[in-house]
Each structure stands twice: as structure tokens, then as C-alpha cells.
Amino acid sequence: MEAYEIISAVRSGKRPTAALFIERLFDSFIELYGDRSFADDPAIVGGIALLGEMPVTVIAIEKGSSVDERVKRNFGSAKPEGYKKALRLMKQAEKFGRPILTIIDTPGAYSGMEAEERGQGYAISNNLLNMISLKTPIISLFIGEGGSGGALALAVSDEVWILEGAVYSVISPEGAASILWKDSSKADEAANYLKLTADELDKLKVVDKIIKESGPFYSRLKKDISKKFTSLLTLDGEELIDKRYARFRKY
């Protein structure tokens, strides 16, 4: 499939959103709300789940499945309060030694006026700074759209996994075509050059694992996540952050 067809598919609203992954991968889920300073951001769902008997902190960007829910979730575009909630829950996970799974599906961080007024750039940069030194294991799972800084703000992780039909990019192909060639209709061409598909990201070593979407993939994924957390939990905090530093130092 051409890169642009893959992009169109992740935007079609026909793929499962983060809610289904939480339901299928975990045995229970307690949702926790709010950033403790301004508001709760419905674009980011966070809480504590049980993976078999292992407590895991889950932080997911949720696009919503119905029209009403998409509006409520701001189409999966998080605001600063969402990134702050995510960081609060990550720090909580670190305190109690819980591993973290982040599930990412976003066109990008919200680019409205209120997001700027409340420091969107700072909210993201603060997550990057804190995630790189968090002393608990983190796996990030890209399930659909992986839009730029808004995705990376939850993906400074030990392992970055991607579904075979998902994407991860620094900019939308429309944005790239419009900035570089002043012509957003060349988006399909830009999509190829941006190397944003799972296969291309694997070649660039931006992702560590591609998840095949065929067969009983939720149960397979559940086993893989459990196995990886079990192995990462054998490392002490310092080993973990040294490894994570090296993972991102290579680019």
C-alpha cells in the first residue's frame, strides 16, 4: 500500500481506538482524571489496569468512536492539561514501581489559542525531560496516527511498538506539501518521502517492533507486553535510564 493510503486508513475512523485496546489487553481498568492544576483533558485517558496480576499504568490518546465522542475527545488532539495529567500518572507509576503502557493515536497536539496560552510547548518539553529519566519501564504502542511532538510527548520509552497499519511522522503530509511546495494537494507525494509507515520506521530504527494485525492479535500482543515488562522489571532504575538514554542518543 502507498503511504498516503495508509494515512487515509488511519484517519478513516474505521480502525479501533485506544479504548478497545484497553478493554482487550487488560483484565480491569480504573480510570483516573485530571492534571491537578487546571482541568481534565478527555483526549487523554489514564489510569491503572491489571495485566494478568501485574498492575500497569496506562496512558492513552483516545480519538473517540462516535461523532459526539470524537467532539468530546477533541479528535485525539491533547491540550497541555492532557500532557500534564499523563506526566502526573507517570510519576505515580514510578513511585509505586508500576510499568507504563502508552497507547498513541493522535493527529498532533492541539494547535488552538488556549493550548498556546497554557503552554503547549512547555507541557511537551517537560514530558520529554521527565520521561527520559523515569525509573520505571515504559512501552509505547502506536495504533493509528502518530502526529509529531504530540505523540512523542508520550513516547520517550524503552520500547516503541507500532501496528503494521499505523504511522508516525514529524508533520502531516498536507503540512509538509504546503510548507515545502506551497501545494497541499501534493500530500500523497510528501507522504512517500516522509518515511512514516511501520516498515519505513523499522528501517530507520525509530520503532523496535511491528505488530501484525492479523489473527488473534490482541491476545498475542497481551503476551508480548507482559513478557517485555517482566524482563524490563529485572533492570534497576539506573540501568533502565542508561539504556533509554542510549536508545534516543543514537539518532
Binding site: S133, L152, V156, V170, I171, L180, L204, Y251
Partner: peptide
């Protein structure tokens, strides 16, 4: 901002530099 011509590798620089800033900070 990011350098579009370097795609996701440009994005990864944000995490890479943040790591070095964090060590300096620590």
C-alpha cells in the same frame, strides 16, 4: 521548528537533546 526533509529523525532530536539536558540538570 522541525526539519521536514529529515522526517521523523528530526522529531527524534527532541528526545535526544532532552536526554542530554536532563543529565546536565541532574
Amino acid at each position: 521548528g522541525a526539519r521536514i526533509q529529515e522526517g521523523v529523525i528530526s522529531l527524534m532530536q527532541m528526545a535526544k537533546v532532552s536526554g542530554a539536558v536532563e543529565k546536565h540538570d541532574r
